[in-house]
Each structure stands twice: as C-alpha cells, then as structure tokens.
C-alpha cells in the first residue's frame, strides 16, 4: 500500500469534545440518579438539575462551533440516517424531563429522563462511530467505550454531588471496571486494525493516568468507602472526582488529539517507464 501519512483533523475541536463530555456526564448522571432512586426510594434532585445543565452546556458548545449557528433548526432535518439529528431530537424532551424531575421529584419523569438519557448517550457514541474519515472514531469499539465512559462519568459526578449509598458505590465500581475493559479493548482493536501512529501515540500517552488515576485509585477509594462507612463521604467524593476527570480526559483526547484521518493510500502505484521500456497495459479508449 502506497500512502501519504495521516494528519490531525481540525474541524472538530475542544467545543465538540465539550459536547461529548457534557452530554456523556449529564446522561450518565441522569441514569445513575434514576437508578439510585429506584433502589433506595429516595430521589436526589440536585444531580438531575446538574445533568440537565451539563447536557445543555455541551450542546451550547456545539452551537458555538457550527459555521451557521442561526440555522440550527436544520439539524432536525435528517433523522433517517444522521445520528447528529437523532441526538438533537432527543435533547429537548430529555432536558424537559430532567427539569420536570428535578423540579417535582416525580418518579415517572425521572424514569422517562433516564430512558432518554440512555438513548442520548448511545446517539453520541454512534456519532463518532459514523465518522468514517477518522479511524479512531469509526472503530466499532468506540460505542461501548463511550457508553461505559458515560456511566463512569455519571457515577463519578453523582458521588461528587450527592450522598452516596452502598448501591451507588457498587454501581460506580462496576462502571469504572467496565470503562477500563472498554478502554483496553478499544485500544487493542485500534492497534490491530492499523490505526494511524499519531492516534495510537495520543492514546498511549494517557494510558497510565487512565489506569492509575482513573481506575485503580477510584476503585481503591470506593472499596475503602464500603469498608469504612464513617469515611465514606470524603472517600466517595475523591473517587468520584477521579473517575470524572479521567473520563473527561479520555473523551478530550479521543476527539481532539487522536483524531487523525487515514491520509491517502492506493493499493498500487504505477512504475514509471524509462526510455525504451514498453508499457504492458493497453491504454486504448
């Protein structure tokens, strides 16, 4: 294969990354809050309000990035195939459901918000998956990674915002472990599928922080919080912030630093003939 080396795309920058960070955190937080309420019977409203704010902030960042912001309503025109349209269609009812749940504490609104949040998070994952021009995004393993990161971010945010019970601590542990498996699977598949060297290098550069600060440290803190109930609040807070920060780091790097295109490549290039050589191929026509 003859090729011209890949280079980093610049069309989607930190503002786009902000949408995936805000949207993932907000939707994950909404689901964790709903699950916690279902388990304990005690709905904590502030996390729902923060979830709505995080999602809205992410969408606002995207709005700041588009070239024709006052045409934003056109984003709703293509639900047949565009995951960006689907994400946009889910956002208004999701934000309304979150606002209603945070305002009234209504269980139905909370459950509805959690379902919409799951669909919203999945749409975000599929947005990246559909970007055929970027090998680090089109890799199918990006979908479970984005889902697991959303759950871990949401659990981390919940631990930082609300009084966590045993259920949330266990869910957070599961989410962080799931994210680690999704991360390692994603990186292994990218390497196996010949992703650009620059993309692999960008991801390798954060491997240690994701493992140590984003996985091992919060897991240790969470287990300690389970074992030492008197220290559970500060331990859960620290674990939550670490889980959240590492999740944001993963998304930020994937969107802005690992986003190399695949360059140009042809399976075969002609060998230029020298004087006296005959072409073997009939050109005709």
């Amino acid at each position: 294969m003859e090729h011209i080396a890949p280079w980093l795309q610049t069309s989607w920058d930190r503002r786009a990354a902000g949408n995936f960070i805000g949207g993932g955190t907000g939707s994950g937080l909404a689901m964790i809050a709903a699950a916690s309420a279902l388990w304990s019977g005690n709905l904590q409203r502030p996390p729902l309000a923060v979830a709505a704010l995080a999602i809205a902030a992410g969408l606002a960042l995207v709005w700041l990035e588009i070239g024709r912001p006052w045409r934003f309503l056109h984003v709703f025109f293509h639900p047949q195939t565009s995951w960006m349209t689907r994400e946009a269609l889910l956002a208004p009812p999701l934000l309304l459901a979150l606002a209603a749940a945070a305002w009234t504490g209504d269980g139905v609104a909370t459950a509805f918000a959690a379902l919409l949040a799951l669909a919203f998070l999945y749409s975000q994952a599929r947005i990246l998956r559909a970007a055929q021009g970027i090998p680090a995004w089109r890799e199918p393993a990006i979908v479970p990674l984005m889902l697991a990161t959303g759950f871990a971010d949401g659990a981390g945010a919940f631990l930082a915002l609300a009084a966590a019970d045993t259920f949330v601590l266990v869910v957070a542990i599961a989410a962080i472990i799931a994210r680690w498996f999704a991360w390692t699977t994603y990186r292994r598949r990218l390497g196996r599928n010949g992703a650009p060297i620059g993309a692999l290098a960008a991801l390798t550069a954060i491997d240690a922080p994701v493992l140590l600060l984003g996985t091992v440290a919060p897991l240790v803190l969470l287990v300690a919080a389970l074992v030492l109930p008197r220290l559970a609040v500060p331990l859960a807070l620290a674990a939550g912030l670490l889980a959240l920060g590492s999740g944001w780091l993963v998304k930020g790097v994937i969107v802005t630093r690992a986003a190399f295109n695949q360059g140009f490549a042809l399976p075969h290039l002609p060998r230029r003939r020298t004087a006296g050589e005959e072409s073997s191929a009939p050109k005709g026509g």
Partner: peptide, 21 residues
Amino acid sequence: LCIGCGYCIVACPYQARYRTD
C-alpha cells in the same frame, strides 16, 4: 441548508471537504 457543523468533513475518508468561515 448546510449549518456548517463539520460532520461531513470528519466523515469523508478522502479529505475532500472544506469549511471557510
């Protein structure tokens, strides 16, 4: 109709699309 979201630019495997602001 285009809103300039840039999604097509990152979706194109041939780097054929541009956006000038």
